[in-house]
């Protein structure tokens, strides 16, 4: 149900606005951030962004590799596309998940971006139900226990407990504790008098 958020780093307004127009013709995409220059890229690799489209010519070859790596480190699931108007070396091309050329028509650009979104939706479709362990964690969350208490009760590390919670939220799309409590009740994982 959620849209794929796209950020663009490109100095040319013509290209930015053209891209934006093409991308937003497709309801599953939204351009959430536009950066006109390299110096204002704070927040470019935020977790809320899934695709980044970058003009590689804003960087030198060496800086480009380092920069792409930095963004990937900040946000592991970020997919980075290059937008190119001229020849890009094979070495630089290899840094990106895909390359968009200025001459390309809109449907081809969108299908490149969509290829990525399909990977994303397939991976979430495989695992829609909570695992047994996740259900146990969910019940304790709903009962109001902290991460530390949950870890102790289930004999797992606190990191594992936190990882389970993250998975529960990404599967159900419910973030708040009170929302998760309702989810647990609706799925008969706990009864009303068990809630603190």
């Amino acid at each position: 149900m959620s849209k794929t958020n796209i950020a663009i780093l490109e100095s040319s307004s013509i290209i930015v606005e053209g891209l934006q127009k093409i991308i937003e013709n497709s309801p599953e995409f939204k351009v959430t951030k536009v950066f006109r220059s390299y110096s204002f890229t704070h927040g470019i690799a935020l977790p809320s962004v899934q695709i980044l489209i970058v003009n590689p010519r804003l960087f030198g070859e060496f800086n480009l590799a380092k920069q792409v790596q930095d963004w990937k480190n900040e946000n592991e699931s970020l997919h980075i596309f290059a937008i190119v108007s001229s020849y890009l070396s094979a070495k630089s091309t290899a840094l990106f998940d895909g390359v968009i050329e200025l001459e390309e028509d809109p449907s081809s650009i969108l299908s490149k971006l969509r290829n990525y979104s399909e990977i994303k939706s397939n991976s979430s479709a495989e695992s829609c139900d909570l695992s047994q362990r996740e259900k146990e964690v969910l019940v304790l969350v709903a009962k109001g226990f902290t991460n530390k208490e949950i870890a102790d009760q289930l004999n797992i590390s606190i990191h594992t407990a936190i990882a389970h919670r993250k998975n529960i939220t990404s599967k159900t799309n419910i973030k708040s504790i009170s929302g998760l409590t309702i989810y647990a009740l609706l799925n008969n994982l706990i009864s009303q008098d068990e809630i603190r």
Partner: peptide, 16 residues
């Protein structure tokens, strides 16, 4: 905003 989005999920996806 989080809880508002939780509410839409509960109402559409999870209530019987």
């Amino acid at each position: 905003e989080d809880q508002l989005s939780d509410l839409t999920n509960i109402i559409i996806k999870y209530l019987p």
